[in-house]
Write a protein that binds this DNA or RNA. Sequence first.
DNA 1: AGCTAAATGCAACTTACTTGCATTTAGAAA
DNA 2: TTTCTAAATGCAAGTAAGTTGCATTTAGCT
Lengths: 144, 144
Amino acid sequence: MKRHHGMKVEIGKSMGMPALFKGIGLKATAQRQEILQTFYDNEGPMTADQIAAKMSKVDMVTLYRTLETFVEYRLIKKLNLSTGITFYEISDTHHHHIVCSKCNLIEEVDSCEIGTLVPHSKKFSFISEHSLEFFGICKSCAKS
Amino acid sequence: MKRHHGMKVEIGKSMGMPALFKGIGLKATAQRQEILQTFYDNEGPMTADQIAAKMSKVDMVTLYRTLETFVEYRLIKKLNLSTGITFYEISDTHHHHIVCSKCNLIEEVDSCEIGTLVPHSKKFSFISEHSLEFFGICKSCAKS
DNA sequence: AGCTAAATGCAACTTACTTGCATTTAGAAA
DNA sequence: TTTCTAAATGCAAGTAAGTTGCATTTAGCT
């Protein structure tokens, strides 16, 4: 699933962000609303720094704490890709990523046939998550 | 593929570690030999700290630099799992991992059917790497 | 044995993230 | 609509993992 211009997910407007926060028992602070709006306005995974850069002004401590809260309440997901830095993206569709080893461009891979690989779950009491990432050189890096 | 006691991979002894380093144009220093031996003696992914703990004494700067060199020369592989800390493991068989979300126990998953999922490579000029990790709760954590 | 590029190791730095604690604020109650 | 309080914020300081600069040492050629 690809989101693009003119097709923004506007949960904030469709149900009201304060209502959304209230529904899960969180205070609808200005900071939380702007952070969540930043996810609505920007598709794809972002680092904490990238999120901060897109916002008017935010204390990094508040940002990190809010991101943890959002992950806990399943509003967003945490991604650990090759770099070691944590990326965050909105929790909509289940998908995987394809990452450029040179410029760290991240694209979404829609399909997920991982279910076919999951008999390994016998080794564990249950499998709750999985991550599949592809790494390579993106077309634009290959040109240069 | 599982390595276990009595079945150690002893490249160091079978071809001589100095010869191995010489073959790739690296000086066979005592530190490099002990670091590589630590990989031969211990199966499974380890963090830099875990490697240091298994060694007689090593400067962390030397260790980090040596690990980077070993990755560059494909003696070992770097793993970025859920935690954000980097793990290193010897480059032998291609495999994936299953990680306990509670205790961070890491097990190997031998089979790799990812090839079937790679038509996504059209999006990139080529795919050089992929990573597939499963996360869940291991049997021993599930008990407690 | 002597030479030199490569490798090491100390100190200091950086980056990503966390913790402690005093101040502020959302939103329920009066 | 003011009052109250737990929840949330924001500053300062701390931590952990990894990096950089630079002087010293060493592998392994000659």
